[in-house]
């Protein structure tokens, strides 16, 4: 068995230390050692987007990264998005308002992808939204609520800035 490496990264603003073999994926590290079970694993081969997290501010698939690669990085998971226990992030709020989720399994990944997408495209057209969020799969909603939520969150985030 390959050596265990010690790991340290900032997760949602707190330093998280752990250990793992080099092959331990970032997704598994976040779920099992950082206890961020909002990181969902839907395919483990990079297609579904459920495991999306922000690494140093950019949306990435955490199933396609090894935890060792994120040593020293700053990670945000869905648990770290809301500003405080009473308030939701505008994207989270919009997903609720627009029925952007049913079973909720794809939701954390979607919310982080949408947040990152809107960061780069604050005022997208519907077509841009549909292609912009095409890297995340949802089997429940038919995307209607998710597209609407992205629209609403874009407006809310623009207004908030």
């Amino acid at each position: 068995m390959a050596d265990q490496k010690s790991l340290s990264m900032t997760v949602n603003g707190r330093t998280r230390r752990g250990r793992g073999e080099p092959r331990l994926t970032l997704a598994d590290f976040l779920r099992e050692q950082a206890l961020c079970t909002g990181v969902h694993v839907g395919c483990e081969h990079g297609v579904c987007g459920s495991c999306t997290v922000l690494m140093d501010g950019e949306a990435v698939r955490s199933c396609l990264l090894f935890a060792v690669q994120a040593d020293g990085a700053d990670i945000t998971t869905v648990e770290g998005l809301a500003p405080d226990p009473e308030t939701l992030h505008p994207v989270q709020e919009a997903f609720r308002d627009c029925h952007g989720l049913q079973c909720g399994f794809c939701t954390p990944g979607f919310i982080l992808s949408v947040a990152a997408f809107l960061e780069a495209n604050p005022d997208p057209t519907d077509d841009e939204i549909r292609h912009g969020i095409a890297g995340n799969l949802c089997r429940c909603t038919g995307y209607q609520g998710i597209v609407a939520a992205t629209r609403q969150a874009a407006a809310a985030m623009r207004a908030g800035e």
Partner: peptide, 23 residues
């Protein structure tokens, strides 16, 4: 970037004793 290699490793379609991370 691992976007092609890691899926193949995960599915054990390929394996290597040494991974040289260029990042």
């Amino acid at each position: 970037g691992g976007q092609s290699l890691v899926p193949m490793l995960a599915m054990r379609l390929t394996r290597f004793e040494h991974i040289v991370d260029l990042n």
